[in-house]
């Protein structure tokens, strides 16, 4: 009963946001009144008409890229964050390295990466993972460092080994922060995804949008943008649901 109500509320909230967005779009369309900005109904019509025939293969390709990148970056970022956060000796060496490499505009590396790894999936996935890896690692490291010392002392006094500490203290303590960084990374990942897909590929929603805009098919451009934002929304909802499942104590 309560759950039903909560679900209803969620749908209402998302629906409200959607209506607001569509109204805003319509308003812009009326003000600008140029073919580069089609009205939402035309874009939606194109979206539904071309979804299975045109959009879907591109969308699936993009979903695959962004999902693999997120999983790889999450795993490696959380793992190294845990290690660096726990042992300050490693941190002493790792932190300068992180701060030196973190600000490098890694997108600039895309042509280089393609030269090394080829123009296939590997270079794209590597680049997206690399960029969000830092966000996740730094957040995890800080979460581990910030664990209450009294908690650690108490659990050690119960006989905990280093492995027990990770299992019972450091991993659960950093999970909520990892989810936050994952949400932030999601936005970054989508942006980088788009960029990598405008480069030496004929598949992916990024390519679809770019290709349509070169041909002046603005309805298709916006159908592609709708597809991309729906993908983003689906990923955000998935992360939220996963967090509720994995961190129930956050929702009491």
């Amino acid at each position: 009963m309560k759950l039903e109500k909560a679900k209803f509320k969620k749908v209402l909230e998302i629906g409200g946001g959607l209506i607001f967005l569509l109204l805003f779009w319509t308003l812009l369309f009326l003000i600008i009144n140029k073919p580069v900005l089609p009205p939402p109904w035309e874009a939606l019509e194109t979206f539904f008409k071309t979804f299975t025939s045109l959009l879907l293969p591109h969308l699936l390709q993009s979903t695959f890229r962004v999902l693999v990148s997120l999983v790889v970056a999450l795993f490696l970022g959380a793992l190294s964050g845990l290690v660096i956060g726990r042992w300050s000796k490693i941190d002493d060496y790792a932190s300068p390295l992180i701060y030196l490499t973190y600000p490098i505009p890694k997108i600039a590396l895309l042509p280089v990466l393609m030269g090394i790894m080829g123009i296939g999936e590997a270079s794209k996935i590597f680049l997206i993972s690399l960029i969000i890896f830092f966000q996740i690692m730094v957040t995890t490291r800080d979460a581990v460092r910030g664990v209450n010392r009294q908690i650690v002392s108490s659990v050690v006094s119960l006989g905990a080994s280093e492995k027990d500490l990770f299992q019972h203290v450091f991993i659960p303590a950093s999970l909520p922060k990892i989810f936050t960084s994952l949400r932030i990374s999601l936005g970054t990942a989508m942006a980088v995804l788009f960029l990598t897909e405008t480069f030496a590929t004929v598949r992916g929603i990024g390519y679809f949008i770019l290709d349509a805009s070169m041909r002046g098919r603005y309805q298709e451009v916006f159908a592609g943008i709708i597809a991309m934002s729906l993908l983003g929304l689906a990923l955000f909802v998935a992360v939220d649901l996963l967090e509720r499942k994995v961190c129930p104590w956050q929702y009491i």
Binding site: I151, S153, S154, P172, L175
Partner: peptide, 15 residues
């Protein structure tokens, strides 16, 4: 040996 601290040392993520 049991150690009990001021802010209890309980794990917020465990019931």
């Amino acid at each position: 040996t049991a150690l009990i601290l001021q802010d209890y040392g309980l794990l917020p993520w465990k019931n």
